[in-house]
Amino acid sequence: MAEAERLLGLITIGILAGGVYGLLAVGLSLQIGVCRVLNITHGEFLMLGGILTFTFSQLGINPLLAPVIVGPILFGLGFLLQATLFRGVKARVPSPSAFEGNALLAAFGVMYVIQYLARIRFGTQSLPSQYLTQPVPYVGINLAVNLIVGFAIAAALGIAVYLFLTRSRVGKAIRATAEDPPTAELMGVNTNTILAVCFGLGGLLAAVAGTLVSMRTPVSTAMGFNNTVIALIVVTLGGLGSVPGSFIAGIIIGIVSMLVAGLWESVLIVPVYYAMLMVLLLVRPTGILGKK
C-alpha cells in the first residue's frame, strides 16, 4: 500500500513538474517550426529568466510578478536575435538549404555569449531562489505550493498561446508563415516581423518557465544547457508545431524523470528519455501529435 502511494505521489509530482517542460517546449517548437532555427540558446533564456527572477526578488519584487518584467525583456532579446542575426544569416547563406545548419552554428555562438556574459555578471554559484515552499499534504507525501502554482501558470499560458495561434490575426499569420512564407507575403503578411515575433514569443515562454523553475530549485548560470536538451527531447517527442503535443510530451517526460529518479538512479534520466525518443521516432517519425 505504501509503495502504491509512493508511486502515485511520484507520478503527481511528475505531472505537475511536466507542465513547465511543456511550456518550455512550446516556445522552442515555435522557433524550430516557424523560424527554422534549431535554437540551442533556448535553455539559456530559461536560465536568464530564473536568474533575473532571483535578482528582482532581492530588490523586493515578488517572483510571481517577475514574469511581467522578465517576459518582455526576453521577448525583446528573442525578437532582436531573429530580426538581426538569423535574418542576416538567411540573407547571406550560400544556398537556402544551408540555412538550418548555419543558423544552428550561429545559435551556438549566441549560447556561449549569453552563458559567459551571465557568468561574468552573476558568477557560477547556486543562488537560493526558492519561493512558496510551504508543503501541502497529499496521499502520504507533501507537495510544495510552488509545484502547484507553477503547473497552473504553465497550463494557463499554454492555453493562452494555443488560443493566440488558432484565433488571433497574428496567430493565424504565424501559422500561414510556418507553412508557406511567399504565399503569406501575398496575403499582406510581413513575414520578417512575424518571424521575429515568433522568436520573441519563444524567448518569453522560456523566461516564464525560468521563473517557475526558480521557485522550485536554486538557479545558476550553468543550468541552461541541460534545459535545452530537455526542451529538444520534449519537442521531438510531442511533434513540431503542436501546442497540445508539447504539453503531453512535457508531462510524460516529467513523470518519467520522477519515476527514474525515485525508483532507479537520477543519472539515468537523460538516457531513458533518449531511449524513449529512439523508439518513438522509429515507430512515428513525427512525434506523438506531429503533422505529416
Binding site: 542575426l85 547571406r92 552554428l105 550561429a106 555562438g109 549566441v110 555569449v113 552563458q115
Partner: peptide, 10 residues
C-alpha cells in the same frame, strides 16, 4: 569564441 562563431557565420 561565441562572438567569433557569430561573426564567421554572418
Amino acid at each position: 569564441f561565441g562572438i567569433i562563431i557569430v561573426l564567421v557565420i554572418l
